[in-house]
């Protein structure tokens, strides 16, 4: 393979990396909004809300992401509106992220001592304000590292969009392998690219975790 060809492949890989990063950020944003909404609904809403929402969250968390992506992609075309691979991946990943993030957020909210809520209500603040202004700020330091950890998972999960034909990094690898017939080196390089994306974030999460433990705001997570 001469330098020109290698250059093309590298550009191809970069394109795939770019899509991976964009998809990760978009899905994290989408999942964040969705997850936040669900968490608030479950904390503020009564048992009726929980009755509807919990099973949905459980189904998403209890089934493989691959199946969910396929469901969105294939299911949408069956229902009549066709989604392109990127949109389908975005929707599928956002729903998945939303379910997991909602649990992270809800868990953090309920971990704030009940006495805080009681104190706020006793002063006469509305439930809405108590959650927004008292509970949430205290839950935030717990949410951040967990959410960051989830973002790393999300970056890795974008590789599954490969099956929808989306040109993210793993699909780029497959295409390159088809052209160059060099699977080992190609996949190793792709692994290293993912590593370069995720490892710095992992280190950052550990730093944040340690800072929070230092300040007594979080315990070690398994």
């Amino acid at each position: 393979m001469n330098w020109a060809e290698m250059g093309l492949e590298i550009a191809y890989l970069l394109r795939g990396t770019q899509v991976t990063i964009e998809l990760s950020l978009l899905a994290f944003a989408g999942g964040g909004v969705l997850g936040f909404t669900i968490a608030l609904l479950r904390v503020l809403g009564g048992s009726d809300v929980t009755l509807v929402v919990k099973p949905l969250v459980d189904v998403v968390r209890g089934s493989p992401l691959l199946v969910q992506l396929l469901a969105v992609y294939l299911g949408s075309s069956v229902l009549g509106f066709s989604l392109n691979p990127l949109t389908a991946a975005f929707v599928g990943l956002s729903i998945n992220a939303g379910a997991y993030l909602s649990e992270i957020i809800r868990g953090a909210l309920t971990s704030v001592p009940k006495g805080q809520t009681e104190a706020g209500l006793a002063v006469g603040l509305s439930r809405m304000y108590v959650v927004w202004g008292i509970i949430l700020p205290q839950a935030f330091p717990v949410i951040v590292p967990a959410a960051m950890g989830f973002f790393i998972s999300l970056v890795k999960d974008t590789s599954l969009a490969y099956v929808l034909g989306l040109l993210e990094l793993t699909r780029a690898a497959k295409d390159i392998v088809d052209r160059t017939l060099d699977p080992f080196h190609t996949y190793v390089i792709v692994m290293l690219i993912y590593f370069a994306l995720c490892y710095p974030l992992s280190v950052l999460v550990r730093v944040v975790d340690r800072q929070l433990q230092h300040k007594g705001l979080a315990r070690e997570r398994l």
Binding site: I152, K156, T158, L160, Y162, T170, A173, V188, C198
Partner: peptide, 11 residues
């Protein structure tokens, strides 16, 4: 832990 399981599988 910092690379996708799918890529590990393909490798």
């Amino acid at each position: 832990r910092n690379t996708p399981g799918l890529v590990q599988l393909l490798l």
